Amino acid sequence: MMTITTPIPLSMQVRTAVDQYLAQLDGHHTTDLHALVLTEIEKPLFEATYQYSGYNQTKTAQILGISRSTLRKKLDQYGIS
């Protein structure tokens, strides 16, 4: 019998990661958390999506909802080829 699992929403996964990060601070202060989170998720987002699309830039740009020129800039920025 095949078991169907419900995927964990991305928002819940991000929430869990942020909660874990904050817990690890152990009372120490942090700043610019918004910028940190965006920086930390953007590169793996582009890597995973690019791989998922079979390294096709047109498909990747469509999946992400951005232009191919923006995608190329981001791939270059993060050294993804």
Rank of each mutant, 00 (worst) to 15 (best):
E47C: 09
T70A: 13
H28M: 12
K43L: 10
I41C: 05
K74H: 04
L64S: 02
T31P: 01
G65P: 00
N56H: 10
H29L: 13
A23N: 07
H29F: 13
D26S: 11
Q77E: 14
L10M: 13
L45V: 09
A35K: 10
I4K: 12
H28Q: 14
G65N: 07
Q62F: 01
Y50T: 01
L36N: 11
T3Q: 13
G79L: 06
I41L: 14
I66S: 01
D19V: 14
K73M: 08
Q13C: 11
A17E: 14
T58F: 05
S53P: 01
T3S: 11
I80G: 01
P44G: 06
D19H: 11
V14H: 08
K43C: 05
I8H: 10
L36S: 14
D32W: 02
Y50S: 00
S53M: 07
I80L: 09
L45Q: 03
T58E: 10
L38Q: 15
A61P: 00
F46D: 01
Y50W: 13
G65K: 02
S67F: 03
I66P: 00
K74R: 15
T6M: 11
S53K: 00
K74M: 08
R72L: 07
Y55T: 09
R72A: 12
L33T: 03
L10N: 04
K43A: 07
G79E: 06
Q51G: 04
Y55W: 08
L64D: 01
A23S: 11
R15M: 12
A48Q: 12
A35Y: 06
L10R: 03
L75T: 04
D32I: 07
T5S: 09
S69M: 10
P7M: 00
F46S: 04
S69Y: 05
V14A: 11
G65R: 04
T31W: 06
T49E: 05
H34Y: 10
A61Q: 02
Q24W: 03
G65C: 05
M12T: 11
L75C: 04
K43H: 06
E40S: 12
Y21W: 13
D26T: 08
M1E: 14
I4T: 14
T58Q: 11
I8T: 15
T49S: 03
T49C: 07
R68K: 15
T49G: 00
I41T: 15
P9M: 06
S69G: 03
K59N: 08
S53W: 01
Y78R: 05
H29K: 15
Q62M: 09
I8D: 08
D76K: 12
M2L: 13
K74Y: 00
T60H: 01
L75Y: 05
L38P: 00
G65A: 07
E40F: 06
M1C: 13
I63Q: 02
A17F: 07
D19N: 12
I4E: 09
T30A: 13
I80R: 06
S11W: 05
D76E: 12
A17K: 06
S69W: 03
G54Y: 04
D26Y: 09
N56I: 15
I63K: 01
A61M: 02
G27P: 02
Y55H: 08
D76Y: 05
P9R: 06
F46P: 02
I8F: 08
T16H: 13
E42F: 02
V37H: 02
A23I: 12
Y55P: 01
